[in-house]
Each structure stands twice: as C-alpha cells, then as structure tokens.
Design a protein around this nucleic acid. Structure first.
Lengths: 243, 243
DNA sequence: CGGCAAGTTGAACCGCCTCAATGACGGTGG
DNA sequence: CCACCGTCATTGAGGCGGTTCAACTTGCCG
C-alpha cells in the first residue's frame, strides 16, 4: 500500500489488499471533499436524500434524539469510517450525524456507490466487510449498555477506540488523541456526565487509564483488558480475506 | 406476488416487487430446509464457517453471553428474517443464535449468497434493504436500553414486534402470538425477569397491553404508542423502491 | 473583567436489582 | 393416581448503582 493512502484505504487493505485500479476507484469516491466545523449536524434524523460520507479527518458521532431531550450516541466515527451508508438503501436516515471536532469529509452519492459496487466487486466486498464490522461494533455497544457496569462500559469503549484508531495509523498501544468530552461519553454509554466523571476518576485512581486534555493514556493495558473482559473478536482486525 | 409465498418473499416485495426469475432464485435460497427444536443453539459465538439461515417458521433470537454468565439478546428473529448474514463477510460470527420455539430454517452457504448477488442485482438490493432495516432495529434497540425507562422499553418492543409480524402476514393490529417468556424479554431489555414481571403488570393495569399464555393483546394501541413515543420511521415498512 | 463551557464534588433520592418465597402448570415415573 | 420435578409467573423486602439537584472550580475567550 502506498504511503499517504487514505485512512479508508488503509483499513480496507487489512481485509483485502487493493489493486491499483481499485485504489483509483476508492480515490474517486473520496474526491468530493468538504470541511465541516465542529458541532455541526451533517445529517439530521429522517433526512431523505441518498448520500453517504467518508470521514477523512477528525471525529464525528451518530446519534438519536429523544422526545424528552435525551440523546443516545450510537457510535463514534473516526477517519476511514463511512457515515450514513445505510441511508443509501433505506428511504430515510434512521439517525443523525454530527461533527465532534472540525472534520473533513468526502460526499458520496447513492449513484456513485452503486456504480462502484457494480464495477469493482472486490472493492464492494471490502466496503461491505467494513460495514459488517461497524455493525458488530454497534452490537457490542448494545451488549455493553445492556449488561455491563458503568466502569466496565467505559473501559471497553476506551479500548475499542484505541484499536480502531491503530488500524488507521492514529494512536498507539499507549494511548491516543481523543476529542470526546464527558457529555458525549455519557450519551454514548447511557449514563449522566456526572457519573462519567466519577467513573473516569475510578479508572484513574486504579492506575488503569487517564483521559485528560483530550488525550487518552493507557497506564495498565493488561489490567484494563482484564477489567473490561475485552476480547477483540468482533473487531475482526483483518488478517487477509475471510472467505 | 403469488399466494403462499414465503415470509421473506412477502417482506422483500414490500421494498421491490419481485419478478418471476427473482422469486425463483429466492426459492432456491430457501430450498435446503431443516427443522430445529426449541432452545437449540444454531450458531455459537465466534463460530467460523460462512453460512447464513433464513427463518421460515417460528421464532429465534440472536444473543451474546458474558463472562459472568449474563446474556444480552440482540434481537428476535421472526419468519422472513435472515440470521447470520454478517458472518458471510466477517471471519467469525459475532454472536450466537438460538431457536426460541420449534423452528424451520433454510441453510444458505456463502457461495450461494455471493452467486445470487451477482446474478440477481435487484434481489441483492432487496436483501440489503432488509439487512439495513434489521440494523436500524438494532440501533433503535440500543437507544431503548440506553435512554428509555423499563416501562417504555417494553412498550416499544411489543409494538415493534407487532409491526414486523404484520409485514409478513402474522399477527394483527390487535395482537399476535408471542412465544417469548419473561426471562427472554429480560435479557433483551437489559432487565431482570423479576422486573419484567412488574413492568408487564403495570402495562396490564394501565389497560394498555396484555401478555398471557403466549399471546400479546393490545387493548389501547394509541395509549401504548403515546407511552412509547413510538414512531415507525426506522422500520421503513416499504411502500415501493426507495431510490 | 465578565461569561460560558467543561470538569469536579457532595447529598439525597429512586429505579431497578438481589435475595427469598410461593403458586400454577404440565410432564414423568413409581 | 398421585408424588415429584422443572419451568414459568408472581410478589415482598431490602440494598446498590446511577440519577438528580446543587454548588464550586478551572480554563478559555471576548
């Protein structure tokens, strides 16, 4: 893989080494770029219009709002992630997207997607693999919220984000830059910001992990894995074709 | 659509009216049938071997087990649902499947799937639409567990199952047959069976809905919708092609 | 300097859990 | 035929995890 390849190209190459013509098609999907400032809503819930985004730089999140004003963050998007791929087939978007930090995205129309899928089946398979992996992450998230304690949930999330970032060349085993504040973490984990604060304190006091000044630092990765009961199976960190 | 068509054919036809040759291919996917008794595990977590199932009759559930013995049900499968579609691309299944009642399934190999996708692009789009819809349901489920009270969660689940069943010709606006016991509901909603019991009692005493002898009866659909803050957008109950 | 967003901490409350027990039902074997 | 069992539903009492409300701090920016 060429140096300087996009985060998405890096990620897909883990599943399937991409050929020059496939990389070219991928670059075509990433051509129509747009910078978006932090805290902007890209897509609102139930928005029609079939287009997806590829996140090139920065962090975003997918979420749903509730009638009572509450918010549930479905997942966080990092460079190399598709956003809104589902709305290419569904009539409307089933959730909203917002920029967490300043971000750079590529807009992809439904037509472009379908065209690429027909002309580049291997690339299509790789993109569907990535989408399946994202789905598996949502499922793991659901399990977290349903059956794990707040402490374990937080540990799990911080570990998962670390692994995902490493796959696209951001972050290291020791930590990573993380623009998420405690409100966002709370809405992701189904907690209040206040309790997130207490949970982070516990993790810090146990010498496991620190989140300070937008930086996550793992002090005891083994201890954290053990606390979180973490196994990476669902992430399928690609070691060649699955089939 | 022909009378007596499979539940899956009924469902897909809502998205895209299927042509005879497409219905034939679909029937081909549903040909290799197998009866499975209740409470049997079809696929265990991290199972390799790329195959999917189409549920033809009965109910099943997808779930993950936790180290502490807990269980989180990801979703329930009803006739016309695919199970394990994701494991066609992912190296291993990211969760387990079990039969809730006695069921009848069709086994579909990864090769068969890929072959059908290449030869019948319209059918492929319809199947991906159904898969996107399933994903949207998992997302809604996540929102429920993360941000809704136990009472609202339960109301939401019972309503959603009702709508899904109606789409494949099972159940009516007044209710439906439901083989789920309180333990299963608890593991789906992130509660204990004991609390499920109390929640069901509340719903009953408020005159909204009853679950007795494997039968759900809606006594006040409007009141239930209002309590659940239910809107059907994410279900995309198909009224013709989306694109 | 004043204002706002984000983080931190304490105290009281409550939704849901845990532990414990009881009842209803169908199946099974003596 | 009935004693026995396992499964499921039901109910009570007490406890804990996480919420709610209410400060107070810190840092940033105009």
């Amino acid at each position: 893989m060429a140096a300087g390849a996009s985060a998405l190209a890096q990620k897909l190459s883990r599943f399937l080494p991409l050929k020059p013509d496939e990389l070219e098609s991928l670059a075509g999907l990433e051509a129509r770029r747009r910078a978006i400032p932090a805290h902007t809503e890209l897509v609102h819930e139930r928005q029609t219009g079939h287009q997806a985004f590829i996140l090139l730089e920065g962090w975003a999140c997918a979420y749903k709002l509730l009638p009572d004003g509450g918010r549930q963050v479905i997942d966080f998007s990092i460079p190399g992630d598709f956003m809104g791929l589902r709305s290419v087939l569904l009539r409307t978007s089933d959730h909203a997207f917002a920029a967490v930090s300043d971000i750079l995205v590529a807009e992809v129309s439904a037509g472009q997607m379908i065209d690429t899928f027909q002309r580049r089946p291997r690339l299509a398979a790789a993109i569907l693999w990535a989408a399946s992996r994202d789905e598996a992450m949502v499922v793991e998230h659901l399990v977290s919220i349903g059956r794990r304690s707040a402490l374990v949930r937080m540990a799990h999330l911080l570990l998962e984000l670390g692994l995902r970032l490493q796959l696209v060349g951001l972050g290291s085993p020791g930590g990573y830059a993380c623009p998420l504040n405690q409100y966002l973490l709370a809405d992701a984990l189904g907690l209040t910001a206040i309790h997130v604060n207490r949970v982070l304190r516990q993790l810090r006091e146990r010498g496991l992990v620190t989140l300070r000044e937008e930086q996550v630092e793992f002090h005891d990765p083994a201890g954290l894995h053990s606390l979180a009961g973490y196994h990476t199976g669902y992430l399928d960190q690609g070691e060649g074709p699955a089939s």
